[in-house]
């Protein structure tokens, strides 16, 4: 590769990082697995890179009875290895553990993965299914965004160039069960043809479903929430016919494209199959 004039900064705090980004074409850098690919192919040519590897504030996982907070510089390997996340958020744990390969999981960070916004990524549907919120800061203000409202298109999010993802918060509900399943016909480390994140929240009787969320990746320009499937499950007991009926509704929500991972029709079929299996996996979790 050619040598470059890109300025490379290594701040040690969030405030230092935020004050370093006020430059056109400056970017934040997490683990670099996505950024390096975009940079190698000259899809990005940043004038300044602000690497967050030394910002300790962004590296913790905090679990309480009511919520899980994950810092944006926590790696996929760390999320997958965390026992509390595995217990409380099995779908998130599964998704983090199947991304790419062991090398990608060791490098890739939560904040970097969300900001990258490739619609085939495993983690977003698993997180959206459990109502994850993204905390974002710039030098003067902060805001919280529902991950469900975070994506605008292929590699596009609602983030402004000066905004930094600091953490992701997931509420813990006692009566909720969640899962993530993916299907890929190619190699284990590839993006999925379709991935399905699901959650079922039960009423206090423990039998009837109060709310259900079903989210698909790989079958549209952004992760797709099938609100019709969710509505169809509310009030049911999650019996097999209700799950099958809800999973079929996914067909109308997805918008897949033909590519080497399957034709659009095939992906629509697989979306319904894996939506059903993800819902079923919630009941077995």
């Amino acid at each position: 590769m050619q040598s470059t004039d890109t300025e490379f900064l290594i701040p040690s705090s969030v405030s230092e990082a935020l004050s370093s980004i006020a430059l056109e074409d400056a970017i934040f850098l997490g683990g670099g697995t996505s950024t390096a690919l975009l940079y190698k192919t000259r899809m990005i040519e940043p004038s300044r890179v602000v690497w967050l590897g030394n910002v300790g504030e962004l590296k913790g996982i905090f679990t309480s009875p009511t919520e899980v907070k994950i810092g944006s510089m926590v790696t996929m390997a760390e999320i997958a290895a965390d026992r509390e996340i595995a217990r409380l958020l099995p779908g998130v744990s599964t998704a983090a553990g199947v991304i790419g390969n062991a090398r990608v999981r060791a490098m890739a960070t939560l904040g970097g993965a969300l900001a990258h916004a490739d619609p085939r990524q495993d983690l977003p549907p698993a997180l959206i299914a459990v109502d994850a919120k993204v905390s974002v800061r710039n030098a003067s203000s902060s805001r919280e965004i529902n991950l469900a409202d975070f994506y605008e298109g292929f590699l596009e999010t609602v983030l402004s160039p000066d905004e930094l993802i600091t953490e992701v918060t997931v509420p813990i509900l006692q009566n909720r069960r969640s899962s993530y399943l993916r299907y890929t016909p190619t190699s284990e480390g590839d993006y999925p043809t379709v991935g399905a994140g699901a959650s079922l929240t039960f009423n206090e009787d423990g039998k009837s479903i109060s709310t259900a969320t079903l989210v698909l990746c790989g079958v549209g320009a952004v992760p797709i929430v099938s609100s019709e499937a969710g509505l169809a499950l509310a009030g049911t007991t999650g019996d097999d016919s209700a799950l099958l009926r809800a999973a079929e509704l996914v067909r109308g929500a997805v918008d897949p494209q033909d590519d080497e991972r399957g034709t659009a029709d095939y992906k629509r079929d697989m979306a319904a199959v894996f939506a059903y299996r993800a819902l079923k996996a919630c009941l077995n979790s």
Binding site: F8, I10, L29, G31, G32, T33, T35, A36, L37, Y39, V49, W51, G53, N54, A77, A102, R103, V104, A106, M107
Partner: peptide, 16 residues
């Protein structure tokens, strides 16, 4: 201690 793809590793991130 972790495996890393050196083809995706920007050298600045190897500091320390």
């Amino acid at each position: 201690g972790s495996p890393v793809s050196s083809c995706l590793c920007l050298t600045g991130t190897l500091a320390d």
